[in-house]
Amino acid sequence: MLYRITVRNADGEKLEIVVEMSEDEVRALAEELRKAGYEVRVEPIPEGEEP
């Protein structure tokens, strides 16, 4: 499935990426980023919607 991941650092800089991963993989990635001090938001992209 496609997911949009938005990551912000302490300075407020934002990075937005689209990935194709399983829900478990995305959850693990988000958890690791949060542990590293980043603010993370994950949104699933519905099938048929443009990323």
Rank of each mutant, 00 (worst) to 15 (best):
K14Y: 13
K14W: 12
M21C: 03
V42K: 00
V7R: 02
K14N: 05
G48A: 12
S22T: 13
D11E: 10
G48T: 14
Y3W: 12
R8A: 10
E16F: 14
E20Y: 15
E50D: 11
G48I: 13
V19F: 02
A10K: 13
G12I: 03
R4F: 04
K14E: 14
G12V: 02
L15H: 06
V18C: 04
E20S: 14
M1L: 14
T6R: 04
L33A: 02
K14C: 04
K35W: 04
E16M: 11
L29F: 15
Y3T: 03
E20K: 15
E39K: 05
I5Q: 00
M1S: 11
D11A: 15
N9Q: 10
M1W: 09
M21F: 04
N9V: 08
R27L: 11
L29M: 08
R4G: 01
A28Q: 12
I17S: 03
M21V: 05
E43R: 07
P44T: 12
V42Y: 14
P44N: 11
L15P: 01
E25P: 01
P46F: 10
P51Q: 10
E39F: 08
E23V: 08
V19T: 04
E13K: 13
E31H: 11
V19E: 01
V40M: 01
I5G: 00
E13N: 15
V19A: 05
L33T: 01
E32P: 01
P46N: 13
L29P: 00
E32R: 14
G37Y: 06
V40W: 01
A10N: 14
M1A: 07
E20T: 13
R4Y: 05
I5S: 00
P46T: 14
E31F: 07
E23C: 15
R4D: 01
E47W: 08
Y38A: 04
D11F: 06
I17L: 09
L33R: 01
L33S: 01
Y38F: 15
M1T: 09
V40K: 00
E23D: 08
V18M: 08
E49F: 14
G48Y: 09
A36F: 10
E13T: 11
P46G: 15
A10G: 14
A30M: 06
D24V: 10
A10E: 07
E43T: 11
S22P: 05
I5L: 08
R41Y: 09
R4M: 06
L29V: 08
A36G: 13
T6Q: 05
I45F: 08
E49K: 13
E49A: 11
L33Y: 15
I5V: 12
G37S: 02
K35A: 07
E47M: 15
A36P: 04
K14L: 13
E43F: 07
E47K: 15
P44E: 08
R27S: 08
A36K: 15
R41F: 10
I5M: 04
D11R: 12
D11V: 11
L15N: 10
K35T: 04
G12Y: 04
M21P: 00
A28K: 09
R27Y: 10
Y3K: 01
T6G: 01
E32F: 12
E16W: 07
I17G: 02
A10Q: 11
I45G: 03
D24F: 11
S22Q: 10
E20Q: 15
E31T: 11
S22W: 08
E23N: 08
V26F: 02
R4C: 03
E25M: 11
E43V: 11
V26N: 00
E31D: 06
L2K: 10
S22A: 10
E16R: 06
V26T: 03
V26M: 07
V18W: 08
M1V: 09
